[in-house]
Design a protein around this nucleic acid. Structure first.
Lengths: 131, 131
DNA sequence: TTCCTTGCAAATCGTTTGCATAATG
DNA sequence: CATTATGCAAACGATTTGCAAGGAA
C-alpha cells in the first residue's frame, strides 16, 4: 500500500543500524546519523524506524526499559537486557516457540505468539566488574 | 526502610485491584477508585501502585502496549495480551523457567531471569466474533 | 507534476515530581 | 510532634503529528 519513494535519510538510518549489534534507541540513532546528515530531524528518524519496522526490514524491541530499541538483524534470535549498563545484547539459543503450545494447552482463546527476553549481566559488564 | 503509614487511598486501590482479574491500567484504576473516593488524584494512584509493586504486594506488567498493567495476584502465572480488545488475561501453564538455562548455555554473561508473555485472542473475543 | 518525505515545532501520552497541606502513628 | 501521604499542577521523556516546503518518480 506504500508507494514508497527513496530517501537519503532512510538509507543512512538503515545503513547505520546495520553496523551496530547493540540495538540502539531512536535517540542514539539520531545522534549518530546526524554526524553524516546534520540536518536530519528526530521526527524523521522516528518516522523511518516505524516505516522500516512495519515493512519487516528491522525489528522494534521492547525490553521493558521504557525505550524502544531497534535491530537490523531480522533473523529469529533472542535478547538480553543488561541491568548494569542498560544495553541489549544478542543471545543465541535454541528455539523456544514450543512455549506457545504449552500456553495453548489450557487456554480457551487463541495463542498467536509470544514475547520473551532475558535480563541479567552482559559479558562486558561481567568482566569489568565495575558496578 | 519505609516506615509506611496507613492510608485510605492505598487501601481502596489495593482492594479494587483485588476484585479485578483483568489487570487494569493506572488510569482505569483511577477512574474506578474515584467512585468511592472522589477526591483521590491520579498522582496518588501512581505513587501507591509504584509503592505496592516495590513492596511485592502487586505486580507491574509490561505487555508491550505502552501502558503498565497491574495485577494483585502475585503468584507465578503467565499473561496473554488480546490483540482484539486490548485486554490482558491470565494464562495458566506449566512453569517455563527452564528457558533460563537454555539461554545461559551459550552465553558469556549472567542470565538472571526472563520475561515472557503471549499475545493472541482471548476467549471472550473468540466467541463474540466481532473484530 | 504527483505525492511521498522532510524539518520544525507543537502536541500527545503515560508517568513522575515539587510543594504546601492533611492525615497517620 | 515527627513523618508519611495527598491533591494539584507543572514537569518529563519518549514518540507522534500537522503543516508548509523539498525531493523523488
Amino acid at each position: 500500500m506504500a508507494a514508497r519513494k527513496h530517501s537519503r535519510q532512510r538509507d543512512s538510518i538503515l545503513q547505520f543500524l546495520m553496523t551496530r549489534k547493540d540495538h540502539p534507541t531512536a535517540d542514539i540513532i539520531y545522534m549518530n546519523v546526524r554526524q553524516r546528515n546534520p540536518s536530519i530531524s528526530l521526527g524523521t528518524v522516528y518516522r523511518n524506524l516505524t516505516l522500516l519496522a512495519e515493512n519487516g526490514e528491522i525489528k522494534r524491541l521492547n525490553m521493558g526499559d521504557g525505550v524502544d530499541h531497534f535491530d537490523a538483524d531480522t533473523s529469529p534470535h533472542y535478547h538480553l537486557f543488561c541491568e548494569k549498563c542498560g544495553g541489549v545484547v544478542d543471545l543465541k539459543m535454541e528455539d523456544i516457540d514450543s512455549v506457545i503450545e504449552k500456553a495453548a494447552a489450557h487456554f480457551d482463546g487463541h495463542v498467536a505468539g509470544h514475547v520473551t527476553y532475558f535480563y541479567g549481566t552482559c559479558s562486558r559488564c561481567m568482566e569489568s566488574g565495575d558496578f
